[in-house]
């Protein structure tokens, strides 16, 4: 709890305490804690003199501001049509087989979370996915197996 408090306080000192500081502060919390806990959102509300419902509203609006605990590596696989037509299904199946999780789930060692995302803008190099902030493109079953294995060894 104190760790969250200190983190939010530091971010508020850095970004300011006006309403437009809300987004960078929430991003900062996600960077550090990997998701926005109820305690973290309450702390942000306290620092910025907002209501908790307002912070929750902003947090749930943005896909990249997670409000549920996530693994260390968040895999976001593109769910839009170009990637789908370029064999996303094989890629997804391979990830699910290796990590033994389905979309929306987190591995029991809290290392990986598997999610879907809307278009990443890599249609010309479909299928594409993100692992945390790193994009991976022109995927196929073999390529994605190597990538995931590399992360497993990390």
């Amino acid at each position: 709890m104190d760790e969250v408090k200190a983190l939010v306080n530091g971010l508020a000192n850095k970004h300011g305490r006006t309403r437009e500081s809300l987004l960078p502060i929430l991003q900062g919390v996600v960077d550090k804690m990997r998701y926005l806990s109820s305690e973290a959102m309450t702390e942000v509300a306290r620092e910025l003199d907002l209501s908790a419902a307002q912070v929750f509203g902003t947090a749930t609006f943005y896909s990249f501001l997670d409000t549920q605990p996530r693994g260390k590596y968040v895999i976001r696989i593109c769910k839009t049509i170009s990637c789908d037509m370029h064999g996303k299904r094989d890629v997804l199946q391979t990830i699910e087989e290796i990590l033994k999780i389905r979309i929306g789930e987190t591995t029991s060692n809290r290392k990986f979370t598997l999610l879907e995302t809307n278009c990443l803008g890599w249609c010309h190099k479909a299928p594409a996915m993100l692992i945390n902030d790193e994009p991976y493109t022109e995927l196929n079953a073999d390529k994605v197996r190597d990538i995931i294995n590399e992360y497993i060894r990390k």
């Binding site: 109820s38 959102m41 309450t42 907002l50 209501s51 908790a52 419902a53 307002q54 912070v55 929750f56 509203g57 749930t60 609006f61």
Partner: peptide, 27 residues
């Protein structure tokens, strides 16, 4: 007071309290 806010987006958007708690649990 802002006990009620707008949460989620698009088709899922709804009027919600903090964490969709019951009204008696919030401000």
């Amino acid at each position: 007071v802002s006990a009620l806010g707008v949460a989620y987006k698009g088709a899922a958007m709804k009027v919600s309290t903090f964490y969709e708690n019951e009204l008696f649990e919030v401000v």
